[in-house]
Structure formats: structure tokens, C-alpha cells
Design a protein around this nucleic acid. Sequence first.
DNA 1: CAGTGGTCTAGACCACCAC
DNA 2: TGGTGGTCTAGACCACTGC
Lengths: 255, 255
Amino acid sequence: MAGIQPPKSQYQQIADLLRNRIDDGTYTPASALPSEPELARELGVSRVTVNRAIGLLRGEGLVRVRRGSGTFVRAIPRILRDARRRFEAREEGSGAGDVEARTMGLRPRTVYTEIGRTAAPPEVAEALDLEAGAAVLVRRRRLYANDEPTQLADSYYPWSLAKGTKLEEEQLGAGGSYSLLRELGRGPARFREDVTVGSATGEEAAALDLEGTVPVIRIMHVAHDADDAPVAVMLHVMPSHLWTLRYEWAADGEA
Amino acid sequence: MAGIQPPKSQYQQIADLLRNRIDDGTYTPASALPSEPELARELGVSRVTVNRAIGLLRGEGLVRVRRGSGTFVRAIPRILRDARRRFEAREEGSGAGDVEARTMGLRPRTVYTEIGRTAAPPEVAEALDLEAGAAVLVRRRRLYANDEPTQLADSYYPWSLAKGTKLEEEQLGAGGSYSLLRELGRGPARFREDVTVGSATGEEAAALDLEGTVPVIRIMHVAHDADDAPVAVMLHVMPSHLWTLRYEWAADGEA
DNA sequence: CAGTGGTCTAGACCACCAC
DNA sequence: TGGTGGTCTAGACCACTGC
């Protein structure tokens, strides 16, 4: 096989080549790529160079590696997260986190890893207008679609608000946490989301089963009640290649 | 120096170590890191391993490499992009793209690289409700803050709408393009933004002066007029480590 | 010119998987 | 046990910088 000359680095050219072969169906979704030694022979380069090229594809979420077994093409259906709609859907009863997966025809699953009282992390304390380390209720969960992890989501509520309420139970019932807040007279009226992109921590990478250096999207969601007091904070960590975020708004801000 | 044992890979440990030294001020912003051979000696590893560790830091935007010269610590002030406010500010006259940099105390600059008629790319045609390849006016520009590239932004308008208007000129005057659209009776009333994260193309990486494999944020912004007809599309490409995106909305959607 | 980082190789050892 | 990918090294060559 020809190609692969020095103006662009070889590993970049090889990544391009593999990307093309995935696009044109030479390597189909879920099938294995040729092994690294094999590709190295075919292309006349060292295995390290092939490995580096595949590292790029991993970072793009195009490929998934199972150690000892091989490198496989991923199907990448991006999940649409419509910030406004997801809370409307929530009103109708389904768990908020599962909305997107369900509308994409995927099989959602939510696993709670912690529900209980804890000290607020600094950023959460600040967002909730509490002193550093104040007591909060945390609800920590992992979301899956077709058994692939898609998101970590931690919700925080002021302890004074959540104490003794259904928020301490795993099943919140129809309408989710925001319905409960409404019953408590603290229904959310205004939302803010700050979105950043960064690297995953070790724990996050493990929990999300991340490939190599896939970047993650971090969303800090804050809900305020009618009196503009913060009532809930949610921190989301999502593999960036799995998601599209959608926001909509009208021209006339509410001032 | 001790440390650096195998449970975590060496290059990850080295990345952690360098990250810590940046955090604690051992390496101050804008100063150079020790050279790779030097670090390799200090840590008792090969230069390739150090190089790989530094590759991680580059991907996080912590460090900037000048070939032949050295590796330097970056100052990373994230720029806040408030989706709603930026269009309010726009009403008041300043160029929309410069709003964020200005409010962060940075020196903004906008360079137009193309203004003219062209065939709409597929995604743009679809968003504007045009047939594939229909004529549109494109306004292509690069935005800088303190002479560092921060964003590529391409605006598209239906040719039938923009033809012969001030939209074809570089200086749009106070209020920017949306004021002009309003004068044309097609003022935007509703906005949608779809946000994704991915790798930069070669041209994007070059134009944005990107380090290694920094991921980019892509925003597709669509404006609709009062009759719900699309009037403008903007595609933004932004180095992900430079930005925080903010969205705010009220609980009662406009249905 | 000497020093910097970018890339590539050959060879090696390891952990993991499937058989 | 043989094949897979993950990592590391020593040595090499290159392009670029700054003096």
C-alpha cells in the first residue's frame, strides 16, 4: 500500500486513512480493526506509530479498545439533550435523566450510587448561597443507555429544604425532584446552565468507561425559585462525543 | 527525585506532577518549563515519556509549545459567553463577537476573511430551509483577544434577503446584523443553539493556533423571525479550554 | 551553531483476553 | 498459550529558534 509521506506526520495520515475506511464501510460498526502489528506491516511503519494513530481515533470516540481482544468501530449516535424540553418532559413524569435516551430509542437505566447528607463542595455551596461546607442533600447517580454509561449526575439541595422529604428516597415519583420542590412551595422558576469542556478525572474516566483522552462536558445546572433563591444544583459530567446540547430562547429576555 | 511507579503509567504520573508544579507556582504563567531532556534526566525516564506527558498538558490547554524555543505555562482565563446577554449587548451597538472579550477586560479584534456570495453548505442550507447549494451571503471572521485567536465565526444569510443590503459591507454599524435584519422587517425573534464538541480540522487548528489535540466547541446558532422563518445561521468554532458557555431560561417555556 | 520540541523505529516487557 | 493492546527505552533524524 502506498501513501503515507512526511509532510503531515505519518500517524496523522494513518488516522485519516482509518477514519476514511470507517466512513466508507471498509470497517463496519462493531467490527474489529486489523491488529496493530498487522496494520504496521500493511503500512510499512512501526507498531508504535499505528498505536499513536489509533489514539487519535479513540479521542474522537470513533473506536473502542478492549485490551487483549482488539480495537472495534463504535456506532456513534449522538444523544440530543434539549435543555428546555427535558424539564417539560420531566413534568410529565419520567425521570429527567432518562428523557433523552428514551426519545433516541435507547434503553435507559439509572443507578443511584449515593443519596444522603454531605458537606457541600465549594462551587455548590456558592451556587446555593450557603457557607462553605454547609450541609446539603446529595443524590449521585450514573445514567446508562443500552448499558453504556452516558453521564454522571449529582444533584444537590440545601439540607434545610430537603431534610425529611421524599428527596431522600430513591424513587421520587412522577414529576421528579422539581415536582417535589413545587409541593414544598419552592418550585423552580428560572434556570441557569454553565457549560465547560475538560479532561476527566481518574474516577470519572473509570465510571464512564472512557477511551483514552476523550474530553468531557461539564454542566453546572442551577435552579432558582420565584423569589430568585437557589433551590437545586446539578453537576453533569458527560463524554463529549456522545452528546449534542440544544438551547432555545426568545429575543425578549425577561429583563 | 522519587515517585513515578508503575500502577499509573509514568507519563500520567509525570503529567500530574507537572500539573501540580504549575498549580503551586513552581512554574509560573508565561515562564518556560524545563526542557524535555532536562526533565527526563531529573525524573529518570526517557524523553519520549516526558514528551507524552506534556502532550496531555497541551490537550488541557495548560501549556503552550513554541517549537525550537520551549514549553511555556499558559495563563488560562476562561471567557464567559452568555448566550442571552451577548445579543442584548449587541443591541447596544458593539460588535457581537467582541462583547465577551471586552467584558473580560481583554483587547478584542475581529478580522474578516471573507464576505460574499457562496453556495450554502448542506447543514446551513437545511437550517435556512433552502435547497442544497442555494446562494447565501457568508461573513467569515476570526476573533482574537489580546491577539490570541479565540474563535472562528461564519454567518450565513439567505442571498435573497441579504443581497444589496449593508450585510455585504464589512462595517455593519451599531446593533450589528440583527439590527439590519430588523430594519428589513425580518428581525430575529427566536434563537436556537446546538452545541457539540469534537476535533478541529487541519485548517481550524491552524487558524486557531491550537495546541496538539485540544478539542473544539462547535455552536450552530440559528435565528428565526417572528413568522418562524430562519433568517440567519452562525457557525462558531472555539478552542474548548478558552470558554464557558452560559444559558439561562425561565420555567414557563413559550410553549 | 547549539538547544528546543516532533517524530519514528526496533526491541522489549507487561496485562489482559480467548481458546 | 498465543494474540491483543499499553507502555517504555535508546537512539536517531528533522525543523525550528535564538544567538
